[in-house]
Write a protein that binds this DNA or RNA. Structure first.
Lengths: 222, 222
DNA sequence: TAGTGGTCTAGACCACCGG
DNA sequence: CGGTGGTCTAGACCACTAT
């Protein structure tokens, strides 16, 4: 039922920008309950195909977008899923004031003292991903009690610091000598970077720049 | 109501791997309808926080993932939204048999004749993105009638060929001399690439490799 | 096969926001 | 303010799958 409604909307009956009848009318036309229409519309809305506003009605999105979902697993799981042995190596851990760009990524106007952690994830003993992380000591002071040579900050945070907002960006960067060394890559190799910043409410938790090894790909789901 | 249920599940009552009571019991405990629980659970499930299986019940996901949504707009819109003037330039258009890797990306075992289109998107007259596209002539033969020097294949497809499946991948690549020339970038610059392949049912529509200019970022939502 | 989640209905009331 | 979508209920039946 919902699927046939999806199909009906999408089979060329309506075009970009068109206004659809209100749920009640559609329900009557199709001989189904309004809740069913509502459910179908919600799906279409989630997929970015349609836009709905109270009183404004439902419109086919005028500028179609390709909307897709990315799952970023815990790095350990990602490595293990490839059938490799996971390894972790703490490189450096310092309590230091955030540089301006880092403060900015949190939306903070003034630098703060945070914990900076540089670490390497290994797959079968070989470098897999380098992470350069900043953790807010105001929001997550307990991290100072964690032995980060063995426990990995990524996982500790996931288990102990739920977040309410998360910004992610992907981009490419040329390997600096530092990255190339750490990752066992050629200098000037092209590397994919994932930057992730999380907050609980409006309080910063952590920001991490994950630099991957050459060839790394991010895949999306349907 | 749904929100309080969300909160209750997430406030530390259950841990990774835990099994939750069945919807009916939760509904009774909270004094709400089962449909309400179902709705809340569906949200949690969509967010990747919980996994549900008929008869198997609902479990908190044992391996937490960061799940996020990426919107990929029409390139024209993306450029215009930045306040730039959009430009488009067809570089080459050939009817040719797919190389093995291209056929493979569609899941085809044998090469087929397709339309290959190389084109450049411009922002304020400057190169913005290069696209190397293959379009199936079996699924979208009408594209041969389109004047691709003026109409851009991206938009024609979006408007005329709805798809049911879409695979996307992001990765970094070192600029070849060809890319560097086209994009006005330095040779060996790191470039972000988006590859997108779409099908209608199990019939291939198009696959496109979009090579971006240096500094390009993909942002995600919530 | 029995237990669980998934879909649907018919109806009520609420919340937002455009005219 | 009135029209539209959003949420909720109480109940029925279905579809999958773990045991």
């Amino acid at each position: 039922m919902r699927d046939t409604l999806h199909a009906m909307i999408l089979d060329g009956t309506y075009y970009a920008g068109d206004k659809l009848p209100k749920d009640e009318d559609i329900a009557e036309t199709l001989g189904c309950a309004r809740a069913t229409v509502q459910r179908a519309m919600r799906d279409l809305s989630d997929s970015g195909i349609v836009e709905r506003r109270r009183k404004g009605g439902t419109h086919v999105r005028p500028d179609p977008v390709t909307r897709t979902t990315v799952d970023i697993p815990i790095t350990r799981k990602e490595i293990e899923q490839k059938g490799c042995v996971y390894g972790y190596q703490l490189i450096k851990q310092t309590k230091i004031e955030t540089p301006i760009p880092v403060a900015a990524s949190f939306g903070l106007s003034a630098p703060t003292e945070m914990l900076r952690i540089e670490a390497l994830h290994l797959a079968d003993q070989r470098p897999y991903m380098f992470e350069d992380r900043w953790v807010s000591l105001q929001t997550a002071p307990e991290i100072l009690d964690v032995d980060l040579t063995h426990e990995n900050a990524n996982e500790w945070l996931v288990r102990n610091k739920p977040y309410t907002r998360c910004d992610i960006r992907f981009y490419a960067t040329k390997a600096t000598e530092y990255y190339a060394d750490l990752l066992g890559a050629d200098k000037a190799e092209a590397l994919l970077v994932m930057e992730r910043t999380t907050w609980i409410g409006d309080k910063p938790i952590t920001t991490v720049k994950a630099v991957t090894t050459p060839g790394y790909q991010v895949l999306t789901q349907s």
